[in-house]
Amino acid sequence: MNPDDALMPRLPIGDWIDAGIDWLKDNVSWLFDLFTTVMNFLVGNLTDLLLLAPALVMVVVFAAIALLVRSWKLSLATLIGFAIVLSMEQWETMMQTMALVLVATVFAVVIAVPLGILAAVSSTVSAIVKPVMDFMQTMPAFVYLIPAVTFFSIGVVPGIFSTIIFALPPGVRMTELGIRQVDGETVEAGEAFGATRGQILRGIQLPLAIPTIMAGVNQVIMLSLSMAVVAGMVGADGLGKEVVQAISTQNLPLGVEAGLGVVVLAVYLDRLTAALGSPGEYRGSLIALAQRTIAQRATTTI
């Protein structure tokens, strides 16, 4: 027996949490059921949508989106990368993972951005949110899976649940940072001309914080993707499940192919959202081209 045991009583923190989780399961199970229904509906339909058209058509569509938002280079890379995934027969699993990531990201952003705004406006909220975010981000991601399975049994829903929790913090942090770092004099200018707090937030702070917020969204997507693989452990369909299966059967070819699928998806989503955050930097995109043409027409008419 450890001699320290006499001095330090055992704190059954784990048991307390377990009791709390049990209580939640018994009393607010309707909430979990609702969440399960909504998530199953969203991820299921989005996956179906992504798989609706023939895969080759979808590859072209994704390449076109890349051209629209960023550049012909990303467009070309998308074409090649996605074609490889298709030929590895990981297309369906990649679309499942993409659906999971997109749904989780949307929910994480919908929660994170307002929370970040609140934290930027109120120092009290900021002081509370900060340690909670630290906790959420440093707690090993696998741990979330345990209560998630208790709540939602296995499948895609516990995966989404833990993904949202894990991916939330950078969204909140970057939103708060983005708003707080808006030049004080510019905000003062809004006040000096009689703008209300809401007008300052909507007209000055949020627009100027957009690049930073988008960097946060980019981080959210990246974390979602890394978590989506972990979600494979609890039975969420997708590339993650392939990886888990490859580990348990020591199947190197399958592991490598599924892993490559994750890499291709990650690079695609990362470059795309980075370009969305700072459109001015990508002058080769179709959007920028269109804007320039419009601007040129406007100046020539003057």
Binding site: D183, E188, A189, E191, A192, F193, G194, G203, L208
Partner: peptide, 15 residues
Amino acid sequence: RRRRISMVFQNFALL
């Protein structure tokens, strides 16, 4: 502030 006093800033404070 809307009706009577406007302000010009040192570092312009344009949007």
